[in-house]
């Protein structure tokens, strides 16, 4: 493996990690407990009646 191929492998892994991290974050936003993003104002006592 020459230097170029190693670099390409690193870049691809970084992209995969980044996308994975976004999906993970989104999936966490799905969980009812942390259902409110920062500053969205729906944490605490105001619960949606749905």
């Amino acid at each position: 493996m020459d230097f170029q191929n190693i670099l390409v492998a690193i870049i691809i892994s970084a992209a995969l990690l980044y996308i994975g991290q976004i999906v993970w974050r989104k999936a966490k936003a799905f969980s009812p407990k942390s259902s409110c993003g920062a500053g969205c104002g729906c944490a605490g006592k105001t619960k949606q009646k749905m």
Binding site: G41, A43, G44, K45, T46, Q48
Partner: peptide, 17 residues
């Protein structure tokens, strides 16, 4: 409505955080 509840709860100090 839900957006009004947010406003009211902030004004009355009922919103956690």
């Amino acid at each position: 409505s839900f957006d009004e509840q947010i406003a009211r709860d902030v004004l009355t100090g009922k919103l956690a955080g």
